[in-house]
């Protein structure tokens, strides 16, 4: 009975996912915010400091791409639906808020694992080798789920103006990129920098990507994986709980 109900809600979350993909993801901003923006950051650093090795930069580009893609659209879905008045219809359906959030997360996850093919291809094209493809794929899957859930936390304040949420999420996302060892390797950070970096899930994913590409890692790989899994579960439950509180305020 419990299991059936669970499977049933899971199937319904696929309906939510399909809707999100059709409406929000196949429209361009994902590619722009998810891949082009990291690419520009990457180029800026590539031109700015020629002494950073290519494999270091490419692994940074991959982790930025997963991060930005997975958080590109998920923060605006809830405010957007409230604004165009489709949300009331949606929550009158027999789906739990967790199901709804899970569906949003899945849509974001799918793009979070597909778009990184672009930077990986770019890396291969410029002659970067991938030493641990399995670890890289596993890492991308986990990180996509983790960052998608993170994006949904950003959408939980009950503001119905997508532009507000966009602003908040940019304010959170950009600093994280600079604190997570993407452009400055963790080992070169000052002590306080290392402490801050250790609170960012992006740090562990970047570490994992770097290990998969050139074998250099700062934390043990098991630690990277466990921490990302831990953040994924934490973020998802936090997002679901927060939306349970705030979603009614959007109506």
């Amino acid at each position: 009975m419990q299991i059936n109900q669970f499977l049933d809600q899971f199937k319904r979350s696929l309906g939510v996912m399909k809707k999100d993909i059709r409406i929000y993801y196949l429209k361009g901003p994902v590619v722009i915010f998810g891949f082009l923006m990291p690419l520009f950051l990457f180029l800026a650093f590539f031109i700015g400091s020629r002494d950073l090795p290519m494999d270091f930069l490419i692994s940074g580009l991959i982790s930025m791409t997963v991060f930005f893609t997975a958080t590109a659209v998920s923060p605006v879905i809830a405010p957007w639906e409230a604004q165009v008045q489709t949300l009331e219809r949606l929550i009158s359906a027999p789906i739990s808020i967790t199901t709804l959030i899970f569906g949003d997360m899945l849509a974001s996850f799918i793009f979070g694992i597909i778009i990184p093919i672009l930077p990986i291809a770019l890396g291969l094209a410029v002659g970067v080798n991938i030493l641990q493809p399995i670890i890289l794929i596993l890492g991308i899957f986990l990180a996509a789920a983790c960052f998608s859930s993170f994006g949904l936390i950003l959408s939980s304040p009950p503001s119905n103006a997508p532009s507000n949420v966009m602003m908040i999420s940019s304010l959170v996302r950009f600093p994280l990129v600079f604190l997570s060892g993407i452009f400055i390797p963790i080992e070169k950070m000052p002590y306080w920098g290392k402490i801050i970096a250790s609170f960012s899930p992006l740090t562990y994913f970047t570490d994992l990507t770097r290990y998969s590409i050139n074998g250099a890692n700062y934390y043990p790989i098991q630690v990277d994986l466990i921490v990302i899994i831990f953040f994924t579960i934490l973020f998802f439950f936090l997002a679901a709980q927060l939306h349970k509180r705030t979603i009614y305020k959007r109506i």
Partner: peptide, 24 residues
């Protein structure tokens, strides 16, 4: 609902199928 919209980016048919999926 009083103020509610169908998804304008979807067709009438897709809206109907989405609702069906939400009701299992």
């Amino acid at each position: 609902p009083e103020t509610s919209n169908a998804y304008v980016d979807l067709s009438a048919w897709q809206n109907m199928m989405l609702m069906s999926e939400l009701y299992g």
